[in-house]
Design a protein around this nucleic acid. Sequence first.
DNA 1: CGGCTGCTGCCAGAATCTGACAGTGGCCGC
DNA 2: GCGGCCACTGTCAGATTCTGGCAGCAGCCG
Lengths: 232, 232
Amino acid sequence: MSRSERLLDLIQILRRHRRPVSGRTLASEMGVSIRTLYRDIATLQGQGASIEGEAGLGYVLKPGFMLPPLMFTDEEIEAIVLGSRWVAKQPDSRLSAAATDALAKIAAVLPDDLREELDASTLLVGPAAGAVEGIDLGLVRQAIRNERKLGFLYRDAGGAASERVVWPFALGFFDKVRVVVAWCETRQDFRHFRADRISGLNATDIRYPRRRQALLREWRATLDVPRRGPGD
Amino acid sequence: MSRSERLLDLIQILRRHRRPVSGRTLASEMGVSIRTLYRDIATLQGQGASIEGEAGLGYVLKPGFMLPPLMFTDEEIEAIVLGSRWVAKQPDSRLSAAATDALAKIAAVLPDDLREELDASTLLVGPAAGAVEGIDLGLVRQAIRNERKLGFLYRDAGGAASERVVWPFALGFFDKVRVVVAWCETRQDFRHFRADRISGLNATDIRYPRRRQALLREWRATLDVPRRGPGD
DNA sequence: CGGCTGCTGCCAGAATCTGACAGTGGCCGC
DNA sequence: GCGGCCACTGTCAGATTCTGGCAGCAGCCG
């Protein structure tokens, strides 16, 4: 196994362990000596991976994705840049900041001439369409990622308000509105909630008893239209 | 210089030469032997770079971007995936295919558990908003990239039609419409053209006499609102 | 204090990379 | 066909890099 492959493996092993792992454990799992492991960690850190080591504890990888070297065509990079710019315009401030950061990260590693081409890229997106949400969509995304229950007050189309406790598992981005897709404990069914009609958001620490992927699958099955793939 | 750095350098050198370059030239430019160069090329090809060699001619790199290993946070990758999904829904079929391909490329190099996470990613985009354009936006993007003149018939808001020859330099994606931003030869000024009002598109081979970046800068300067950065 | 751990310098042996040479086959102009 | 140019492969000794073991320092905790 080449060194570069081993480095990617190391990232994966670190990903699997959420708690701190000692260098010795990692080394034996990869079949190398501790000394080499320290060198590998240093190399990864030099490449931008956020691995933290603390004496007496072990190593932790901050949550994230490590992409190996990758080749994109002109059109593919245009698509990614355009998409990220669109996301950057969305009302979800955390996500839009992340989109900006991601583009900056890509630009940072590019040679000058390519960076210019990226900056001068000629696909533009219009200003964000809709009104600003009253709630923090970042909290919703966090609840989805961590499979936590969400409580809030919902005002439906007729104006009637109701208290809800839901298991959120997806977030839809439409032209004007953001929609939280969830299993509603109150109604015992899948429900969609327009973000602009949600108030008094309460992000709990209570894990809901299902896997988010499973909920997503079931929800899709309830839709009339046949669905081709993820994200449709 | 480490081997991996040298490989990135090789990509850059290949990028600079648009015409085929012989292996010997490349080798001397990098200060290595021809044998090593062949080995490097083989390694790059193994990593997915589309380098083509032909006996009697030399090597050419198909236009594209090579990204070095890169680390993204969870939110950054969510932003990129969401953005690409949005692009994939746009009416521009070439670009939307490119977005799909880019996601597939990323998914292909990810370990299984991460690929699942990506597939089950819970940020969804609604169906494409507007009507289908009658023209091939791919041709417009190509004309922009290559700085070529574009001819077409334009029907303005009042219904009046006119023949135009323009220097296109940007393409705007708005809620419902795509807008071509260009210097209009006919009117001798910057003009915006809604894609759905363009017909009889004629992509010429005639290069226009200005740089697209410069046009973009001048156009931005003519706008009232102060602009913060690229893509705004 | 002792035990555990991260982290660095050093050095000999293992593994890999490199350069040179030889050879094959394709393409092109003469 | 012939010769020149070039991409590409196999082989092998020497240069280079990587690796593992050892020693040592520093921080944290019971």
